[in-house]
Simulated scan of single mutants.
Amino acid sequence: MLSRHQTFWNLYARLVQKPALALIGYQPLARKVADLNAVLTLKAPADLRLTDRTLTHADQTVKVTLCQTGLEPAGGTMLYLHGGAFMIGNLRMYRHLVARLGDAAGQRAYFLHYGLAPEHPYPIALDQATVAYQALCADPDAGPISIAGDSAGGNLVFALLHRICSRDLPRPAAVVALSPLTDMRMTGASLRTNAKSDHLVAPSWARRGKESYRAGHDPADPELSPVLGDFTGAPPCLIHADDTEILLDDARAIADALRAQGVSVEVNISHGRTHVWHLNVGRSPEADASVAEIGQFIQRVTSPKSP
């Protein structure tokens, strides 16, 4: 049974956020509305610390922000790739979640400021994620690296993992995806069957984001549809999704693809929660428990193995 806090946020998503995302087609206005929503509804932890940094690899640079709460972590580094249908999303919307995830995992957590579509279509965001990842790999103080992301950021997480595996780059230690978009061909039945039950995401919003980012490229490219990707030697993965979401089948499909290639995968399908309910961390027990589970997973798979 859902808590009253999660029930409230489900109603808020359905009555306020979902109509706004579906109806506002002018991109600058959509971003301003999303920013206003973040200011009104997302409260940063009192001990939040933000540190801007630049990561460089092969003469390419990207901007990240280190999001921290509590004590200085010593268990490695997390690279977080945010959601927002490739078109919206910024530090103001995600700083609290990234900091909480890093705290739960005992890792330094970096938020990547990647370019948004349609101004920055594929492969810009993926290229920037690749630069950030390779820069962290070259940092002797990074420790075990985890990659995490939600929704469209979940697409980037698995597209990056495909690049890492297909190019035989150093593997991360853990991968986490929250309600990921993994099939740009939009073949999942849940896109239709869950169109009404999804509290937040309308199929029209998902399609708009997909087309804005894809920019005419083949949706069957595994860098766009990582469900078709190469995951040889990939690390353990954790996937969260809800059975009311339109992206439910995307989460299931990528889990099946990973398992078929011998990857260890844990999938947690909840019931009745909004898309990426983790953003309610600090405001609902369901989000708090899910963030704690992610932290436990990362700590478990990145800890030194016994002989």
Rank of each mutant, 00 (worst) to 15 (best):
A152F: 06
G216F: 01
A132N: 03
A148P: 06
G143W: 10
V176T: 08
F158L: 10
Q128G: 08
R185A: 13
A206G: 14
A159M: 05
P226F: 04
F111M: 05
A135P: 06
A105W: 03
D221M: 09
D230P: 07
S190A: 11
P219N: 02
L200R: 06
P226R: 01
P180N: 02
E119V: 14
L101P: 00
W205V: 06
P121N: 04
T187G: 15
Y133C: 05
D103P: 00
I124H: 13
D168R: 11
A177G: 13
R167L: 13
G209C: 10
T182K: 00
P180G: 02
S146A: 15
P219V: 07
P235G: 03
L200Q: 09
N155C: 13
P118W: 01
L101G: 08
L224N: 01
S166I: 10
A195Q: 10
N155M: 05
R214S: 14
A195L: 02
A117W: 02
H162K: 08
L169Q: 15
D139H: 11
I124M: 07
P144V: 01
W205R: 10
L238W: 07
P144K: 01
S190I: 10
K196F: 00
Y122S: 12
S204E: 15
P180D: 04
A142S: 15
A189T: 13
S204L: 14
V201D: 09
A148S: 09
D141S: 15
D198F: 00
R214Y: 01
